[in-house]
Design a protein around this nucleic acid. Structure first.
Lengths: 158, 158
DNA sequence: CCTAAGAAGTTGAATGGCGAACTAACTTGG
DNA sequence: CCAAGTTAGTTCGCCATTCAACTTCTTAGG
């Protein structure tokens, strides 16, 4: 009697799609990172800036920021320390919970954002968006949404 | 007179697709990594194992392996050292070029591969492949291929 | 109230990752 | 045949990430 089910290996088409997906991700990350480098920012930095600049009063609680960016508390703490040293953000106490802290976008951080965003957007267009037809892009989003959904459900702690 | 062109910001649809793509990548990487963890492997380790096991004589020159996995020579060197410590691969001198080295899959590495591959494939299916219709998968591959092409062309040294 | 459990963040040590400089070996043009 | 330039790979030093305490504060149960 069989105790284990036979492995369903990937078909050629599946294998091919999967490897393409992996490769695109890798190269795209690499390229975007590289395009930010002249400004002295990493993708992580940029993501923090985006999150803060889109928030009310350009501030977020550390915990919220951590879960928004899928980082551990510890990692975020170090990250914010680095960005604080670069004067992009500052920490500010929370009135309603004295354990809590806000990460707040500074004026310099805001200015950095304004300066960098156009370049970053151009980079995203050049290396990704503009290489797909609007239609393909919509299909891609539609196909990937359920995957995102599924994965969000899966994960324990980051 | 205008010296700078107006930024072409992303449309809502583009923004949405882009963020989905980013999110899927992040969560997917996280999840696959997590599913490999019980075996003491990272995705990087696994990728090396795959490359070696698919090669003639289960061996590859360090440089070839580096470019196959899109890593810098330095990074690969460290990576192989770690895997050597785990007895998954060993280094072997190259007869025809005394500067050169082969990374060679060990028996233990091969066995590890046999043990882990089914779980990894299952993980890829569960979190990605099986969540897309075969048709959507094909479309995705077709859409992403040119992006991969473009990015491969772009990059200087990894 | 007051204590115990839990949450918010930080810290520090250990590990991992990466670019730049380096060593050793091969190749080539004079 | 040898000096200059290339190529293969490693090492060094710095920064990022992780994990496990630790501190401070809040909250809920008795």
């Amino acid at each position: 009697m069989e105790t284990e089910t036979a492995t369903r290996w990937l078909t050629d088409a599946e294998q091919c799609a999967w490897r393409t997906h992996l490769e695109v991700n890798r190269l795209l990350t690499y390229q975007l990172e590289k395009d930010l480098q002249p400004f002295g920012l990493t993708m992580n930095d940029y993501e923090i800036l985006v999150n803060l600049s889109e928030s009310e009063d350009v501030r977020m609680r550390m915990s919220d920021l951590a879960s928004a960016t899928l980082q551990s508390k510890s990692r975020l703490s170090h990250q914010i320390t680095r960005m604080e040293n670069a004067h992009l953000v500052r920490r500010e106490n929370c009135d309603t919970d004295r354990r809590g802290l806000y990460a707040v976008l500074t004026d310099h951080g805001m200015e950095m954002m304004r300066k960098v965003a156009p370049h970053h957007v151009a980079s995203v267009r050049r290396h990704f968006i503009d290489l797909l037809s609007p239609d393909a892009l919509m299909e891609l989003d539609k196909a990937l949404k359920p995957v995102a959904e599924h994965l969000r459900g899966q994960r324990g702690r980051p």
